[in-house]
């Protein structure tokens, strides 16, 4: 599948912001000082920026508002509605917390639940597509949820690290972040292991089933319908860059999990500011891995072209 930069950015940034909202809504972080202001602003900014990025690939942006209408059937519509609801609930919770100094736990819980539901809906946009087995037969919702929660924890940790060493320990102790990263890496390995077996054949799709000609013999694409490229090939037979998938995945694992894990533990002794580096490394790693999530996914329609 074509890894549009707008979609890679959208899924990574909203995951981060919503993960942050979930932790803050659940009561993480100290009540005093700059932390609450910066953390709430960052969470809303990340989720908002991600939401805006998602409109980057639309053909008709003026119709984007209609995406709030089909929540009864469409995961993309549910995602849009939940995103706005999560940001509204969290915005209210953040305003009362920052301005009034009171954390309304009921409102916080609702914001956290909505944030997690939004990440789930984002994952379901991809996990619902039977035509892309690499997304539909793998634990994609678990991957997105754990990735978002880990990123959110690191982002909150980075904010507490920025606003002062004194608060760093209280907000997000480095060992919390390290534990979350270890769990996230485990889930990523679990997803990757199931993705390895999630070829198009895993659902019984082949050029024989696609054409229905398997009863006669072995089927091979002899001639494509057109000599040039087209939307179907650009969008759903994305073969560029898969050659370097192994190197990119290794880079993603080191930057996304290993480096932040080491930095989080180092932050315990050397100071909270290292959490900022941990966050930056993690986001870069996640961008690489999310790019691969799209680039490596094969669509069954490419079988008609004899392509992957």
């Amino acid at each position: 599948m074509h890894p549009a930069p707008s979609i890679v950015l959208f899924t990574v940034l909203t995951g981060l912001g919503l993960g942050q909202m979930a932790w803050l809504g659940l009561g993480l972080g100290p009540d005093e000082g700059l932390f609450r202001w910066l953390a709430c602003a960052l969470a809303l900014a990340l989720a908002g920026a991600g939401g805006l990025a998602s409109t980057g690939h639309l053909g008709r942006r003026e119709n984007a508002w209609r995406a709030f209408s089909q929540w009864r059937s469409s995961w993309l519509s549910r995602e849009a509605c939940l995103m706005v609801a999560a940001m509204a609930f969290f915005g209210l919770y953040a305003a009362i917390w920052c301005l009034g100094g009171v954390r309304l736990w009921g409102l916080g819980l609702a914001a956290a639940a909505l944030a997690l539901a939004t990440i789930q809906a984002t994952a379901m946009i991809y996990a619902q597509l039977k035509a892309v087995p690499r997304w539909s037969v793998t634990p994609t919702p678990a991957l997105f949820l754990v990735t978002g929660l880990t990123g959110g924890l690191l982002a909150n940790g980075a904010v507490s690290g920025l606003v002062g060493a004194g608060l760093a320990g209280a907000a997000v102790p480095g060992w919390w972040a390290a534990l979350a990263l270890a769990v996230a890496a485990g889930v990523a390995v679990w997803w990757q292991t199931s993705a390895a077996g999630a070829g198009r054949a895993s659902q019984g799709s082949s050029v024989e089933s696609a054409t229905g000609l398997g009863f006669m013999g072995r089927v091979r694409s002899f001639e494509a319908p057109h000599t040039g490229s087209n939307y179907l090939l650009r969008e759903m037979a994305f073969e560029v860059g898969r050659k370097r998938a192994f190197e990119l995945r290794r880079l993603g694992a080191v930057l996304g999990y290993l480096a932040p894990l080491v930095l989080s533990l180092a932050a315990l002794g050397l100071g909270g500011w290292l959490m900022v580096l941990a966050l930056v490394a993690h986001v870069m790693g996640m961008l690489a891995l999310r790019w691969l999530f799209f680039a490596e996914a094969e669509h069954v329609q490419a079988l008609y072209y004899g392509k992957r």
Binding site: G59, R60, Q128, A131, N230
Partner: peptide
């Protein structure tokens, strides 16, 4: 239609194509 392309991704047959001009 807002031209998000998700329907084309959902179709296993490659039966939907985005108009390159109208979006």
């Amino acid at each position: 239609c807002m031209g998000c392309g998700l329907c084309a991704w959902a179709c296993p047959y490659g039966a939907r194509e985005m108009d390159p001009v109208a979006g």
